[in-house]
Simulated scan of single mutants.
Amino acid sequence: MTDRLGPPATGLGGLITGAETIGRFMYAVAEHTWWFSPSMYLLCGLPLDTEITTNLMMSLKHPDDGPPATELLAKVAQTGEPFCCPHRIIDAAGREHSTVIFGDARPTARGAIDSIQGFAIDLTAGQQRYSLQIGAAAVRAATEHRSAIEQAKGALMLAYGLNPQAAFALLRWHSQRYNTKLNEIAESLVAVLQRTDRVLPGTRDAMDRLLQDLSVRGQHTGTTRPR
């Protein structure tokens, strides 16, 4: 039967949903033998009758995580300190699993470390969901920023008679001079313009004349459509 987590674990943010598969393990220090729960075998992609050895365990580590894992095992076997660390497992089929491993040690009556036991939580699916959420949020933010920047450029073009490139350069100059993000300046400018009823002298009259001229020109050229 596959082990599953109960309530979402604290400290792991939105990665834990309560449906993650976890594996249990135990290492007998003196005998150098390992015990795996069925779900730990599943996580590692191993048949249930596989004999687990330390060498096999280390072969399932991501190459970058192997040395730290060896050091951690030796340290816990000496000190008995509880541990918790991110860890990547490469299963027997070559698939990478992003996990977090935590546990503690059990001492003998004389104080020596008898065994190390713990859990491995597979966060791979959770990380993928989290990455998709972050990516979607970034796209939304970029779209919102781009909209504000375009509106701010339009306001500057109208106020100063600038072309789009010059309007953007003006926004960027203010951003660099005052060490403020360009999108924040643009969003603030748009917000102020939306809630103010002040219009630059002559701007409204000039805009009325421009719209009228464009409408008349479109009517003559057939580019406008009656409603």
Rank of each mutant, 00 (worst) to 15 (best):
L5D: 02
S39I: 04
E51T: 15
A92P: 01
S98Y: 06
T33F: 04
M26S: 14
G80D: 08
M207W: 13
G218D: 12
T54R: 13
P38I: 03
R172I: 00
A141Q: 11
S175T: 02
L170C: 07
R204K: 11
L12D: 09
R24A: 11
I185Y: 01
W35Y: 10
A137Y: 06
L200V: 07
G66H: 05
L200P: 00
H145A: 13
R95N: 14
P8C: 11
T21H: 02
G14R: 15
G154I: 02
P7C: 10
L214V: 15
M58A: 07
Q212D: 15
Y178C: 10
P47F: 10
Y160Q: 08
V76A: 07
S188V: 03
A69V: 10
G94S: 06
T108D: 13
L132C: 04
D213G: 08
Q117L: 08
P38F: 05
Q117T: 12
D65F: 03
D205N: 11
H87L: 05
Y130P: 01
D65S: 02
G202Q: 09
G14H: 11
P107H: 13
T224M: 13
A69C: 11
A166I: 02
T221R: 10
A138R: 14
W34Q: 06
D104M: 09
Q127K: 13
A19N: 14
Q78H: 11
W173E: 10
L60V: 05
M1T: 05
L12Y: 12
I90P: 02
H97G: 00
P68N: 05
W173D: 08
G45P: 05
P68H: 04
L60C: 08
G118H: 07
A167C: 03
L15V: 13
G222R: 03
L5H: 00
Y27V: 15
E184R: 12
N163T: 12
R88P: 00
T99D: 02
T108K: 05
M207E: 08
P47Q: 04
L12P: 06
L156W: 07
P226C: 05
T196R: 01
R195C: 12
D114M: 06
M1N: 02
A93C: 10
L60Y: 13
Y178D: 14
V199A: 09
R227Q: 04
D122P: 02
E81T: 14
T224I: 14
R24Q: 06
V216W: 10
E20H: 09
L171F: 03
D64E: 08
I121V: 15
A19D: 14
G118V: 01
L42Y: 09
P67M: 04
Q78K: 15
V139Q: 14
M58C: 03
F36P: 02
G80E: 08
L182P: 01
R146P: 01
Q151F: 01
P82Q: 06
D3A: 05
T21Q: 10
E184F: 06
P82I: 12
L214D: 13
T53G: 10
T10Q: 14
R24C: 06
H145S: 08
L132F: 04
